[in-house]
Nucleic acid binder design. Structure first.
Lengths: 249, 249
DNA sequence: TAAATTCTCGCAAAAAAGTGCAAAACCCTG
DNA sequence: CAGGGTTTTGCACTTTTTTGCGAGAATTTA
């Protein structure tokens, strides 16, 4: 990884999270902490960030207000994202749906990960393109305006042609009896196709959406291999799912 | 491998990955690193890339963090965009390439316009989705990290299946003898396909790019129906193009 | 206050770049 | 197609940049 590349990556992380830790960056980019520190000081000299003990802060840290979306669920989504990312190994073909949890996952990807990401979600794809070692495939079709994802027969056909190693689904509703459900028909069809085209299916959801149901069924619970929430795997809410043979993280 | 050939290849790799390493290029093309370095410095002199220790980065790598770039040409692009938009009528199928001029056009669209826009440019598509009455079709394929457009055989095949009413091309170089030219092979192929799939072909370009040439030809001048610049149609620079039968706006 | 983490600083090895030069390839023109 | 001039390329050499490590100092945390 080139020096300049590292520095741009650091600034990008700073934009996303408002702070970075030397220790984290060091393991993420596979260089010594000394190197990271030198990068941080260089960037600090240029006024691009503020160096502090242990890492650096975004220059706008004081001014910036967190998105109204709610810091609560943002933290949850971040822990979910971290668990999810740990499942991705070098060389994998990864299929992802849309949604804010998936987006958070895209932002959490370590920079040295070499993989191919396939998605119809425009925000997610934009995020993937910021990662130096990731190949990005965008699935085309009609664009759904509010969710900024592509939906339709073309997209479905493309997905069905693929055979991904793993697929990550941002999940709107999950329930023991009804499995995964959606409120948008097109999105449901798409997720169905994704499940069929992947060796492993991982559902990401915050705990509020556990045991809820929406009108359109995507699939039975048994098709899911892994369920990721922000809760501990031992949490009683998850017991029933674990008993269905689903790995809970 | 010819020098020009090498340089085109380098720029292409840069579009796809946002970076190149001298060491990698050297083994890939079977020339010494010295030669690669000389190529990189040459391209850097022309402003096509940014030379850094170990290789080079695409220009957009920096611009991401300095969005204030290029205020000069912004006005020009805006007048071009306004002229271009006036050609679009309700109900049309519109094919657009990538580039900043096209992006400016997307921002200039009147809100009551009802049309279908088809593009592989992620920034442009994002812009289109903000317009309530516009249908948006995103062309999928591998994402070029530098230009944030999709390129490849899939994208080309999709475009060739279509028959659009009009297509707008952001043009890098246009010349009386060589027609429209590009520096990226994939993009050139894509634009070729767009031209073949449209009843009417419109080129958008700022006047600086008139009478310039780049390595890869997209098409002859005669295939172009309309040329839009920020100049008055009566400007002497445009006379020669008008005499070729091209409508100049 | 003690333990753990992070930082400073000098140094050495590795990687990349700069330099001067000669061979090879290319391009003319007669 | 021969030969003079130009461009391009590779090589040996030196110089610069980048990076990691170790030991001790400084800072944070418990």
């Amino acid at each position: 990884m080139l020096k300049k590349e590292r520095q741009v990556y650091i600034l990008h992380q700073l934009n996303l999270h408002n702070k970075v830790l030397s220790s984290v960056l060091s393991t993420e980019m596979n260089v010594s902490e000394d190197t990271i520190r030198r990068d941080l000081y260089e960037l600090a000299d240029e006024g691009k960030l503020i160096k502090v003990h242990g890492g650096a802060l975004s220059r706008s840290f004081n001014e910036v207000h967190f998105p109204s979306n709610g810091v609560y669920s943002q933290n949850k989504k971040n822990t979910i994202a971290q668990k999810a990312v740990s499942l991705i190994k070098d060389g994998m073909f990864v299929l992802t749906s849309g949604g804010t949890t998936i987006l958070e996952m895209a932002r959490t990807l370590p920079s040295q990960l070499k993989a191919t990401f396939i998605s119809g979600s425009i925000p997610a794809v934009l995020e993937y393109t910021h990662h130096p070692n990731i190949e990005v495939i965008l699935i085309g079709d009609k664009v759904s305006k509010n969710s900024k994802i592509t939906v339709g027969l073309e997209a479905m056909a493309k997905i069905r042609q693929m055979q991904a190693d793993i697929c990550f689904l941002g999940t709107n509703a999950i329930d023991l009896n009804h499995g995964i459900t959606e409120n948008d028909w097109d999105v449901a069809q798409l997720k169905k196709a994704m499940i069929d085209s992947s060796k492993k299916v991982v559902c990401l959801t915050i705990s509020e959406k556990l045991d809820t149901v929406q009108p359109i069924q995507i699939c039975e619970l048994k098709k899911i291999h892994t369920l990721i929430t922000e809760l501990e795997p031992t949490d009683p809410k998850l017991r029933a799912y674990a008993e269905e043979g689903i790995e809970v993280l």
